[in-house]
């Protein structure tokens, strides 16, 4: 069964009066378990809008969205919050960490909202931070961390609830090439461990890490094809 199934998703924004922006005009897409998908396309083509809908941050104007076989388009606010909390791990371009909280608390936060007991919470947060290589930075506040480290904290926060899917909207957009590559290596590792990953990017060499590339243009899917130029290492391990 597909983790994500989108059928004819339309998203319009009312700009007041009769004016409307058609951000997505009928997108259909199915993503299976342990897939690694890159979404590309020019600026304004609707990538973020699509990600927000997949991530249950936003609801489509029309169309059907099934998440793990459950119809999300008709969910209420509380149910959406629960899906965001338990099933989806979001990684943003601008990290979006709470500035006044240390790394540990940032990572614990989804577990707090998920009602996990405090001892288990702490243990899982520490494990996950360790996993992303920040075991020695748990009590640092975001402004005491480098960009790459911040993004690792964000990845740890996305991972800690063991979600069905990880969504990353230009996760390397604010990082230099080297740190970007480090984050991509982390994603690759997560993928090998069985995680399903969707990431938005502008850069072709970042997209190369994925196994499938979806190209958007003007709110529509232009192409949807597997990555041909696969790295030898990745191909070897994947098969």
């Amino acid at each position: 069964m597909n983790v994500i199934e989108l059928r004819d998703i339309v998203k319009t924004y009312d700009m007041g009066g009769a004016e409307q922006v058609l951000a997505l005009r009928g997108v259909s897409l199915a993503i299976g378990k342990n897939e690694y998908v890159a979404i590309m396309g020019p600026s304004g083509s609707g990538k973020s809008t699509l990600m927000n809908i997949i991530g249950c941050l936003d609801t489509p104007t029309s169309g059907l969205y099934q998440f793990n076989g459950v119809n999300v388009s008709e969910m209420g606010d509380n149910d959406l919050a629960r899906v965001r909390n338990k099933e989806i791990g979001f990684v943003f371009q601008t990290f979006n960490l709470l500035p006044r909280s240390d790394a540990l608390h940032n990572v614990e936060l989804p577990l707090i909202y998920g009602g996990v007991s405090s001892s288990e919470r702490r243990q899982r947060a520490l494990e996950t931070l360790d996993h992303v290589g920040l075991g020695d930075r748990v009590h640092h506040k975001p402004n005491e961390l480098s960009g790459g480290q911040r993004q690792r904290v964000a990845v740890a926060r996305a991972l800690v609830t063991r979600p069905s899917i990880i969504l990353a909207d230009e996760p390397t957009g604010n990082l230099d090439t080297k740190t970007g590559e480090e984050i991509m290596a982390l994603f690759e590792e997560l993928h090998h461990q069985g995680n399903t990953i969707i990431l938005v990017t502008h850069e072709a060499d970042i997209a190369e890490h994925a196994h499938r590339v979806v190209r958007l243009r003007d709110g529509k899917i232009e192409t949807d094809e597997p990555v041909q130029k696969r790295r030898v290492k990745t191909a070897a391990t994947a098969s």
Binding site: A81, R82, R84, N96, L98, Y113
Partner: peptide, 13 residues
Amino acid sequence: KEIGIRKAIGARQ
């Protein structure tokens, strides 16, 4: 922004 972040990671209304 903080409210947005909290909501994105599952805080309910």
